[in-house]
Design a binder for these strands. Structure first.
Lengths: 343, 343
DNA sequence: AGAAATTTCTATAACGTTTTAGATTGCTCT
DNA sequence: AGAGCAATCTAAAACGTTATAGAAATTTCT
């Protein structure tokens, strides 16, 4: 008569509810509850509704460790980022917008900074070997990017901000820097500028190459002179950019247009200009890409092309999820075409 | 003679090594391997060394889902952040430096943005109820912060950037905004300014209250006039700050000093000033806290007090871990005292 | 009506780890 | 030499989930 062993221990209040709790309340087996909640086809409609109601009542949330152990799925998207301080504005928006894109999904965002002194592949090896995420997102892509190569080789899902030489085969979102370079030169030429300086991204990175190529071609077509900043790039420190620009202008005071690929580089370049007595818009036109809308505060006359980082982040979130869920489908690819500034 | 069932399947190359792999190679039981790796006292020294060597050889990494399921520990620190765009600079540095502080530990960082339209407690309830992290870090603390109250009530480990009214009982790191307000007023008074405007953080947040109190007291002592910006604060949008300052100066052109609690607010305020024909440093002194070092580029004459966000992040990382590991120890608390600018 | 097919459910096992309790061995003490 | 003890190991169970294979109940077909 003593049925201690088989007596139902109906979910004590306070304890975290599990499938077992629901199983005991409903009298159904645990797998049935599991399948009911995941809307499996072999569970009756009434049962499903009843189970869902109980789950709601007791406040059931799946234990992620249990799911992960059983399925091997982590439900985590990892974002690996350089800690380069000049990328901060762009980076902050990227994090925030990727997380935004993940908001209504089952996925979580894990941020892993990559330190300049570390091996470039280290965070990626870690993620792949420990299986600590289902997909990785990263940026600052080189044409022959070793991280892309590694992940492709291991068959690990990823999505990148930028394009490698294998871009047609992987998920990416990119800002069309070729078009940006072209627009910049054309716009300045149209305003009568003849002697331009481009402070572009590092040439090693694909987007730097593209921006330079776009600008060069437009310069040829428009018949203006274009110099490419050599000792520095738009990722350099503010001090270096400012000094470089100031220095350059003492040697070549005929420069009448500066094109910049980043918000911070622009501010530094303007500081360098002004130190040499040149004014924005009157003496030298400044044309810049901007991720954060404060250049107009900085100097009213700066010509600005916005980059929609929010959209980029949301796109990358979706692209990463798609790469996890449908590894064989065509990868999601997006390209932002910069718009010509008016006037 | 057929011992298929008991034959040892020594770790196939490619498969992810587990404790079982090591157990089979070493001939030891799985728990023995586990205890050897965790340096338990009841395992022989030679055994420990042998196990560690094998683990290294096969490249063993503990399966986090397994650990988590068994122990209930996630090894994740969650960072919940507002998506307020004017906080971006500060935020990016915070993320990066918290992650930096977690670098050599077993902990991972999970970033969860908090959307202004959502219930303030939503992310916290989620974390506590799903157990998706061991501790939470967050910022923008109010004196009577409901998030702090909730986590305290649930006994969930946390560390915050800022101080609530229960600050003596929880882990925090804070910049001493009272001292900042004091220094700002004293410094401007010393430079002969008489009529100051403070654009501080929202008064609802504790650090806003403190900054205002510090500034007020110093103003009394120095005998200068201090106005507190009422319709806006340093978290307001750039456009609003600019318009507010411009507007104020048309009504009260005798203002000769502006104190600002954030980098972006400072830039906007300067833009507003200049639109009315006032110059930085000559007509009006501008005194600002800055998380990102570019205000000197913006206008050379701005007086700047740096905030060491990197240190704050690293401190918070350590504090959160301590809160997890030693819930009953005295919570870690840190306070950054701003330094007086020279001259 | 009986066989076959379909629907709906359950029992069992497994993912990788750690904890608890207990087993074995060798050693020390009297 | 036998009892007691310390050192070192192992067996079994458990955390919460889902996949697989099969059982039971119901419906459909001929």
């Amino acid at each position: 008569m003593t049925d201690d062993k088989t007596s139902l221990q109906v979910g004590k209040v306070g304890a975290k509810p599990t499938l077992k709790t629901i199983s005991q309340i409903s009298g159904l087996a645990i797998p049935t509850v599991s399948r009911a909640l995941s809307d499996a086809p072999d569970i009756g409609q009434k049962t499903k509704e009843r189970v869902r109601q109980i789950a709601k009542d007791v406040g059931y949330v799946p234990n992620r460790a249990g799911v992960r152990l059983r399925t091997g799925r982590t439900n985590v998207i990892s974002l690996v980022l350089p800690t380069d301080h000049d990328m901060m504005n762009h980076t902050a928006r990227l994090i925030s917008s990727i997380a935004g894109g993940l908001k209504e999904t089952q996925f979580h965002l894990n941020v892993m900074p990559h330190y300049p002194d570390d091996d470039l592949l280290k965070p990626f090896r870690y993620i792949v070997e420990t299986g600590s995420a289902d997909a990785v997102i990263f940026n600052q892509i080189e044409l022959d990017d070793p991280r892309v190569a590694y992940l492709r080789e291991r068959g690990f899902p990823f999505a990148v901000h930028g394009r490698s030489k294998w871009a047609d085969q992987h998920a990416y979102y990119d800002f069309d820097n070729g078009v940006f370079g072209k627009i910049a030169v054309e716009h300045l030429a149209q305003r009568g500028r003849k002697r331009l300086l481009l402070i572009g991204p590092p040439e090693l990175q694909n987007y730097g190459r593209e921006m330079i190529a776009g600008a060069r071609e437009a310069a040829r077509n428009c018949g203006v002179h274009l110099m490419i900043a050599d000792k520095i790039n738009s990722d350099a420190s503010s001090d270096n950019v400012r000094a470089y620009v100031a220095d350059l202008l003492t040697n070549d005071p005929l420069i009448d247009g500066i094109i910049s690929g980043s918000t911070t580089a622009t501010m530094a370049a303007v500081a360098g200009m002004e130190a040499e007595g040149f004014d924005v818009a009157t003496d030298i036109d400044v044309f810049s890409k901007e991720a954060m809308p404060f250049l107009k505060l900085f100097r009213q006359g700066i010509i600005v092309v916005p980059e929609d980082v929010k959209h980029a982040g949301e796109f990358l979130a979706r692209a990463a999820i798609q790469a996890v869920r449908e590894p064989n489908a065509a990868p999601m690819q997006g390209l932002e075409i910069p718009k010509r500034p008016q006037s």
